[in-house]
Design a protein around this nucleic acid. Structure first.
Length: 473
RNA sequence: GGCGACGUACCCAAGUGGCUAAGGGAGCGGUCUGCAAAACCGCGAUUCGCCGGUUCGAAUCCGGCCGUCGCCUCCA
């Protein structure tokens, strides 16, 4: 079965066909490391994670590049305020980004190039653009892309650029562009840039924002590659400009499939500093939300759908994850008993899961397939009609799904030696019908985020997915 | 002003021309159980923002209206 993606470029769902059979080359816009990445950023990274994991599930070899923007206006301003060089300023945020990625169960990309280490590549592209007449140098030494030189400009955003409204920011722009819609490839040094500059053939200055993605994507993936992703807010101008720069420099088509992730809202509002509603994953975790709950919340809404992030949704996600994990973990507990023919159920579920994700990563349908399996198997469980082999087969299927979802694995509890001993002590107390002691230990462990459940097959152990008193987002 | 997305139960959410409108959460009643939990059984949209049209047949297609949101050179 072929995968179908909604391509922003054509505004249609299209069958996915990689340029090189069996290999997918994708570029995913990464963080600007001037702060911690917030939950909205991670929505995009989680979507990209789903995308790469599913492509791998389908048997493709994936080469993913995610850039780190470590020089831009915000970074220059913030590092200046702090009185440290930009590298010193960005390093902790780079580190934090990788920590967060790991916490949220996001698989690592093959390359994480940094803008500041690819200035030469950017300069090369700009030189080509100058030579071909697609760029020009303004009086102050800055270099601009000449939008009028690219016939197809506006194709991605579906904007008629000639009739675009001119914003105030543009009107007050001090640079000397030929046309208002032209954008900077190279920004010549200004006193407020301090010691942030590179001496290159283009003069003393620094790169514009868009050029880094063209330079780094083409360096690692070639002039023409398969997939480029980002948030919807990147469609214009960022990705539109990338196409213009790249295609004008190489004369080749840049990207075949453009996939854009919708925004995450917080209580129906856009997340922004001014509204004071920016949420960071590490903050949620500190307040008692397990990372797997955050992951599930971000993952379980289709990427082209706005995701309204609320307390209610987190709590609801925690319950869903709990149901999935309880089911998954219960599969280890079967004694051999009557066998049920689950072959059809398993193959139906696998088929439904794959067909759903084939259809532009329809995660809702994929999850529905899993929940239906859970319900069906639980019914048999209640009637004691599951053998060890059945359970093993079902678990193998879930493990296969989990290479895409990373929920089951991430949700496992890790027990320390101390906790293990307490659990043993409680088992002993229960045997002696010392309910007081048993309940005391259970209470104690609950406070430590460990939940014990007694079943006929023994006591099971799981972690608290969300703190009881967790309330406000 | 231009471009675009969306409106399905208490909440989240799939379905885009045809079986009883998926699935999850929450709720209520029951079974099970040392207690707790899990799990199971049962209950829940005659209806898909509103109005009109096309069709044998519409949540799905067309037109209009209402409402929410995003982008239009900081942004995932």
């Amino acid at each position: 079965m072929a995968i179908v993606f909604y391509n922003t470029l054509t505004r249609k769902k299209e069958k996915f066909k990689p340029i090189t059979p069996g290999i997918v080359k994708m570029y995913t816009c990464g963080p600007t490391v001037y702060n911690y990445a917030h939950i909205g950023n991670f929505r995009a990274y989680t979507f990209e994670d789903l995308l790469r994991r599913y492509l791998k599930f389908k048997g493709f070899k994936v080469i993913q590049v995610m850039n780190l923007t470590d020089v831009d206006d915000k970074i220059i301003k913030a590092s200046k305020e702090k009185g440290v060089p930009i590298e010193e300023f960005t390093t902790p945020y780079k580190k934090a980004f990788f920590e967060d990625i790991e916490t949220l169960g996001i698989e690592k990309a093959e390359f994480y190039p940094e803008a500041t280490k690819h200035i030469n590549e950017m300069v090369d592209i700009i030189k080509k653009l100058l030579a071909k007449g697609h760029a020009y140098k303004a009086a102050d030494g800055s270099i601009y892309f000449k939008v009028s030189s690219f016939e197809k400009y506006g194709q991605l955003a579906n904007l008629n650029v000639k009739e675009m409204r001119v914003g105030e920011r543009v009107a007050s722009d001090e640079y000397e562009k030929e046309e208002i819609r032209d954008f900077a490839l190279w920004k010549s040094w200004k006193p407020e840039d301090g010691n942030v500059y590179w001496n290159t053939e283009l003069g003393k200055g620094r790169p514009g924002w868009h050029i880094e993605c063209s330079a780094m994507s083409m360096k690692y993936l070639g002039n023409h590659f398969d997939i480029h992703t980002g948030g919807v807010d990147n469609i214009f101008p960022h990705h539109e400009n990338e196409i213009a720069q790249s295609e004008c420099a190489t004369g080749e088509k840049f990207v075949n499939y453009w996939l854009h992730c919708e925004h995450l809202l917080v209580n129906d509002e856009k997340m922004s500093k001014s509204l004071g509603n920016v949420i960071y994953p590490r903050e949620l975790i500190a307040r008692g939300v397990d990372p797997v709950v955050i992951r599930y919340t971000l993952l379980s809404t289709h990427y082209r759908q706005k995701l309204n992030f609320t307390t209610e949704k987190l709590i609801s996600s925690a319950s869903s994850v709990e149901r999935l994990l309880d089911f998954y973990n219960s599969l280890d507990f079967y004694e051999d008993s009557k066998q049920t023919e689950f072959k059809n159920l398993i193959s139906d579920t696998e088929k439904a899961f794959e067909e759903a994700l084939d259809d532009n990563l329809n995660i809702s349908e994929a999850m529905a397939a899993i929940f239906e399996l859970v319900k069906e198997v639980n019914k048999h469980k209640a009637k004691k009609q599951i053998s060890k082999t059945d359970a093993k087969n079902i678990k193998a299927t879930l493990d296969r799904f989990d290479t895409v979802l990373n929920i089951f694995k991430m949700g496992q509890v890790k027990l320390s030696e101390e906790i293990r001993q307490l659990i043993d002590r409680r088992a002993k107390a229960r045997k002696e019908k010392n309910w007081k002691e048993a309940d005391r230990i259970r209470e104690y462990l609950l406070e430590k985020g460990i939940i014990l459940e007694d079943t006929p097959q023994g006591t099971r152990c799981k972690k608290t997915l969300i703190k009881k008193d967790f309330s406000k987002v």
